[in-house]
C-alpha cells in the first residue's frame, strides 16, 4: 500500500476542525490542552457559533488560546476571566461567552471572581483545566496539587500543615444557586474525551439558553510539570487525580 492510497478521504477518521487554526501550539507533547482546544473548536463549528462566540483567555499555559481557536477572544488579566466574561455576556446577551482557565487562574488568584460570577449565575460557560500544577511558570504548586505531590515549590511533597489542602473548588461551585451545571470530566482516553465534549456542549447550550453558570472541570495532565512521559502522566492521573477529583456530574439542573 502506498502513502497515497492511505491518505484517501474514504479512510479519514479525523480532520482538523475548521475553527482550529493552523498555528502550531506551544503546548508540550501529551498536554491535555490540545484535546480540549480541539473539542471546543469542533463544538463551536458544529453548533454554528463561530459568529457569536467570544472566548476569554486566562493567564497560564492557555494564555495563547486565542491563537488556536478562530473566534473573537479577549485576553484577561490573571484570574479575572469570569469578571471580563460577566461584562461581555451582560453587554452582549446574544453571544456565547466562555472562559478557558487553569487551576492557578481559576482557583488561586481568581477565586473571588470565579465564585461571584457563578453565584450571580452569569450566563457563561467556564472551562476549567485542572492539572494540579502551575505549568507555564515551571511546575510550582497549584491550589489543586495533591497532598504528597512534588512540585518546584513543594520539593518534598505537599504537606497540609505547610501548604493547606487540595482545593475542590468545583464542589464549592456546585453549592452555589447560580450554577446550573457543574461536572468533572477528563480527556485521558477517547471515551473520556467524548464525555467531555458532551459536557462542554451542554455548558454552551445552558449559556445560550440563559440558564446560569455552567462549570466543566477537566482533570488533565502536565507531563512536563509532573516530570513524566505522556503515557505515565495519563496513568498517574487515572490512579491518583481521580481519587481526589472523582469524575462525573456534581450538579445538573
Amino acid at each position: 500500500m502506498t502513502p497515497e492510497e492511505i491518505i484517501n478521504p474514504a479512510n479519514r477518521v479525523y480532520a482538523r476542525p475548521r475553527l482550529l487554526t493552523e498555528a502550531n501550539t506551544h503546548y508540550c507533547p501529551g498536554c491535555s490542552h490540545g484535546v480540549v482546544h480541539r473539542i471546543v473548536a469542533e463544538l463551536l463549528e458544529e453548533m454554528g457559533l463561530e459568529n457569536r462566540a467570544v472566548g476569554v483567555a486566562p493567564v497560564g499555559c492557555a494564555v495563547f488560546a486565542y491563537n488556536y481557536i478562530d473566534v473573537d477572544w479577549v485576553e484577561a488579566a490573571h484570574g479575572r476571566a469570569p469578571a471580563v466574561a460577566t461584562a461581555l455576556s451582560r453587554l452582549n446577551p446574544d453571544n456565547l461567552v466562555f472562559t478557558y482557565q487553569g487551576d492557578g487562574d481559576l482557583a488561586a488568584i481568581g477565586t473571588a471572581e470565579t465564585i461571584h460570577a457563578a453565584n450571580r449565575g452569569e450566563n457563561i460557560a467556564i472551562i476549567f483545566i485542572n492539572n494540579a500544577i502551575y505549568g507555564m511558570t515551571g511546575g510550582q504548586m497549584a491550589p489543586t496539587t495533591l497532598l504528597g505531590q512534588k512540585t518546584a515549590t513543594t520539593p518534598y511533597g505537599r504537606r497540609a500543615d505547610l501548604n493547606g489542602y487540595p482545593l475542590n473548588i468545583t464542589d464549592l461551585l456546585a453549592q452555589l444557586r447560580g450554577t446550573c451545571y457543574v461536572t468533572r470530566q477528563a480527556v485521558h482516553t477517547a471515551a473520556a474525551a467524548r464525555k467531555t465534549k458532551a459536557a462542554i456542549k451542554k455548558a454552551f447550550e445552558n449559556a445560550l439558553a440563559g440558564k446560569g453558570t455552567s462549570v466543566v472541570e477537566v482533570v488533565g495532565t502536565c507531563s512536563s510539570g509532573w516530570k513524566m512521559t505522556p503515557a505515565q502522566a495519563n496513568d498517574w492521573m487515572a490512579e491518583h487525580m481521580t481519587e481526589h477529583y472523582p469524575l462525573g456530574d456534581l450538579k445538573n439542573e
Binding site: R80, A83, A85, A87, L88, A112
Partner: peptide
C-alpha cells in the same frame, strides 16, 4: 447595564471586558 461587583478588582476587569466588545463602560 449596572452591576455592583464583588470588588474593585472585579469591577475594573468588567470594564476591560465590556470595553473589549466596543461598549461605552
Amino acid at each position: 447595564v449596572v452591576l455592583q461587583a464583588e470588588s474593585e478588582v472585579a469591577a475594573i476587569n468588567m470594564i476591560y471586558g465590556g470595553a473589549a466588545s466596543g461598549k461605552a463602560v
